[in-house]
């Protein structure tokens, strides 16, 4: 973990409520895809946890969906704004554990950490299949970015406007040879994927209301088969076999 100032470089609107943000600063504390940052915002007492979508030595890429005042304020920051950021939080995905052909499943804003994960997998010689789910065609984003990485991309929308009509679980069922999943999305989606018979293993990214984001307050802790774990420190990635619903 590191606390430092990041400068907002640019913001790009992706859909009606989703934005891409690039922040420059010291990313030396970031060690794995799936980690997150915790951002202090003026006028808000608690920080806002946001997944690291991707990173370089001196920049962070974040995808933010506006759901309340904090995220509203964040996407409206003008370039040049300095933000107090705790970076390199959480365990992150372990990309050595999914075999040669894992499936990456993301729902809505949950696709964010899968982007950096997919890129690093490809660099490491792993060829992931990526399945992304959205409510409707107009809610879809980052399809081109994922395609450009060069991974096999499958898309599902609930209303069938784009790709397969249905959920990411329907995508997974079409690639039965994939038996290991890296998953991020809303809790019902995590639960549905967790229940898929074809999976022998998987890593699931969880969310929780956080007090600190760095392991000190026990605000985020959840039961697992290995005892209670802090989503912010021992997670946000939990392994298939330890998850308790």
């Amino acid at each position: 973990m590191k606390q430092s100032l990041f400068t907002l470089e640019h913001t790009r609107q992706l859909t009606g409520d989703t934005y891409e943000l690039v922040l420059s600063g010291d990313t030396s504390a970031v060690t794995a895809p799936g980690q997150f940052v915790n951002i202090q915002l003026p006028g808000k007492f608690l920080r806002r946890p946001i997944s690291i979508c991707n990173w370089t030595e001196d920049a962070l890429l974040l995808l933010v969906r506006v759901v309340g005042e904090g995220t509203h304020d964040l996407v409206r920051c003008v370039p040049g704004t300095e933000l107090d950021v705790l970076s390199g939080l959480g365990n992150g995905f372990d990309l050595t554990q999914g075999g040669a052909h894992p499936i990456l499943l993301g729902g809505g804003i949950g696709i964010a950490p899968l982007y950096g994960l997919a890129q690093r997998m490809l660099e490491a010689g792993v060829t992931p299949t990526v399945g992304l789910g959205f409510r409707s065609g107009k809610d879809a984003f980052y399809l081109e970015e994922f395609s450009k990485l060069g991974c096999r991309l499958l898309v599902a929308t609930e209303d069938g406007q784009l790709g397969t009509k249905g959920f990411v679980t329907d995508l997974a069922k079409n690639v039965r040879e994939c038996d290991y999943a890296f998953v991020c999305g809303p809790t019902p989606m995590l639960k549905a994927v967790h229940g898929l018979g074809q999976l022998t293993g998987g890593q699931f990214s969880f969310e929780a209301r956080m007090g600190c984001g760095f392991g000190a307050c026990m605000g985020c802790s959840v039961p697992t088969t290995n005892g209670y774990k802090r989503v912010c420190k021992d997670g946000p990635i939990l392994y298939k076999e330890e998850i308790v619903w």
Partner: peptide, 23 residues
């Protein structure tokens, strides 16, 4: 083990916690 989730809520100039003495 402490209390069920969620345990934290933001408030104006502060926060609520119901960690439930997890230790």
């Amino acid at each position: 083990p402490g209390n069920p989730q969620p345990r934290i809520a933001e408030t104006a100039a502060g926060m609520l916690n119901a960690v439930g003495l997890q230790n």
